[in-house]
């Protein structure tokens, strides 16, 4: 297995990742799509190497529009990798105990090995994918969600409105942690208005899309609720 130079100080937190589906699968996943539930970003777990004790995965972010181009075979796996929005590529080595990806640390690779680049002629093949409808549905949802920077935060905001009826009376200091104009927008929306809006069903479904959330995720959503309150 390739010896990697990596930065042990720079870790990728994967405990809030939710697995969406496998884009390539044979006797186990080869290329899997995840969503970071804290910010809605998509990541690939791309199997690149193995020895007798470990399987190695590289992890990198992908944009929904590039992902869709990949699924529509407009761009190759290599193109998708090159178009990643963040230069950082992480890796994780998973041993035979196979405890689950979130138990293993993912570190940033400092010098990316040439032989870990995807093949130039490797394109998505729907025959290798066991959950194409679910994957596409979640990508389309993310387009709607990311229309503006503010949109995604509404998911958390609905939680707030459901649980905190006196939201608008929260002390200003707690709201000021966020530097964008999200809070100004939220202040103008009442829960009743949201409930009657066409978006409400969508966001409610969005929360229910991940019934198998692990406890830490729930805990972090609560933390995020506080960030926006």
């Amino acid at each position: 297995m390739e010896t990697l130079i990596f930065n042990s100080e720079r870790k990728l937190k994967t405990e809030n990742f939710a697995r969406i589906g496998d884009l390539s699968y044979f006797e186990g996943p080869l290329l899997s799509l995840f969503e970071d539930l804290t910010n809605g970003n998509f990541y690939f777990f791309d199997w690149v190497d193995r020895d007798q004790d470990y399987n190695r995965w590289i992890i990198y972010r992908v944009l929904p529009k590039h992902l869709l181009n990949f699924l529509n075979r407009k761009i190759s796996h290599l193109d998708l990798f090159r178009q990643r929005p963040e230069k950082s590529v992480y890796f994780t080595d998973i041993d035979f105990e196979n405890k689950g990806y979130f138990y293993y640390s993912a570190y940033e690779i400092e010098s990316f090995p040439k032989n870990y680049f995807p093949n130039e002629d490797s394109y998505f093949d729907p025959e290798d994918c066991n959950s194409i409808d679910r994957i596409k549905s979640i990508i389309f949802n993310s387009f709607a969600r990311q229309k503006s920077e503010n949109e995604y935060s509404k998911v958390y905001h609905i939680h707030n409105l459901k649980t905190k009826t006196n939201y608008c009376n929260q002390p200003i200091g707690r709201r000021s942690k966020r530097t964008t104009s999200v809070n100004k927008l939220f202040k103008a929306i009442k829960f009743e208005d949201l409930k009657n809006s066409p978006s409400f069903d969508y966001y409610s479904k969005e929360i229910k899309l991940y019934p198998d959330l692990r406890n830490p995720v729930q805990a972090n959503i609560k933390e995020d609720e506080n960030k926006y309150s």
């Binding site: 006797e27 193995r50 399987n55 035979f96 196979n98 689950g100």
Partner: peptide
Amino acid sequence: VNIKRKPPARILDDSD
């Protein structure tokens, strides 16, 4: 594949 120890099976979580 899931019985073999060397090399280990490709498993990301329990769903595999």
